[in-house]
């Protein structure tokens, strides 16, 4: 009975969503190109005051924001304060997990020979790939969050292979805290040098070069280290509530 009433409610909700969205969004006909009046047009042309000069890969220099990956330039430059808040949310959730599950010691798990050997072989490669992804966040798809998650996955694989956490957790906490502090310090330097918090005050270089885009690569490396150590800390906290199988 309850499921039937829920199903009816869902049908009513679906009807209202369809009828209200159908007028405002064109479901079957996406536009041919991005609307000139959208804010994103300014992000793509790297000119927040609204110009539409062409930006060419490998040629344009001295732009407002020199990142080739436009999503990165939105996340870490134009909306960097948002990312700071996002990292704070992740920190608070890691803190909550630590408070709830951090008390136990955790039993050692058994793992098979294949997993044990493969984990030793693969986890360093995963670690290096994660570092590659977050240092190239301004050029290729990816960035601090996927790279950090990949590093934490290598940590998880290592835990599965060896059956217990062998890393020094205190150093993870230090890395996490220092990365967060440096993010805020970079923002504060922007406040004093250029006049607003987290402003891109370093020279932005040529679009598409590894050393370009000002503070974006620095911040993304910090975000990658912070996310990697934070998610590894969450995994370590969960492993403490493990019981013998």
């Amino acid at each position: 009975m309850k499921k039937f009433i829920s199903f009816l409610l869902i049908l009513v909700l679906a009807f209202f969503l369809m009828t209200s969205l159908n007028s405002s969004l064109d479901f079957f006909n996406p536009p041919n190109s991005l609307d000139e009046t959208r804010m994103s047009n300014a992000f793509i042309h790297k000119n927040a005051s609204g110009g539409s000069d062409p930006v060419e890969f490998g040629k344009s220099t001295g732009l407002e924001d020199g990142s080739a990956n436009i999503v990165t330039s939105v996340v870490v430059d134009y909306r960097s304060f948002d990312t700071l808040g996002e990292i704070t949310v992740l920190f608070i959730s890691a803190l909550g997990v630590g408070l709830l599950l951090g008390a136990g010691t955790g039993a050692k798990q058994r793992s098979g020979f294949i997993l044990k050997t493969a984990a030793k072989l693969i986890s360093p490669l995963m670690m290096v790939t994660g570092i590659f992804i977050f240092t190239h966040g301004h050029l290729t798809p990816g960035g601090g969050f996927p790279g950090g998650s990949m590093m934490a996955t290598a940590f998880l694989l290592n835990y599965f292979g060896s059956g217990s956490i062998s890393t020094d957790l205190k150093s993870l906490k230090w890395m996490e805290s220092l990365a967060g502090v440096f993010y805020i310090v970079i923002g504060l330097i922007g406040l004093f040098v250029a006049g607003s918090f987290l402003q891109n005050y370093l020279p932005t270089g040529t679009v598409g070069h590894l050393f370009s885009a000002g503070i974006i690569p620095i911040i993304y490396v910090l975000v990658g280290l912070k996310v990697g150590s934070e998610v590894s800390g969450i995994i370590a906290d969960f492993s403490k509530s493990e019981v013998t199988s």
Partner: peptide, 25 residues
Amino acid sequence: PILTADVPSDLLNFVDPLPQAMVLT
């Protein structure tokens, strides 16, 4: 929305990067 060597320079065919950044958050 990533600038590469073989993207046309008028930049009209990029999808909107702002929703993607929101979804990353």
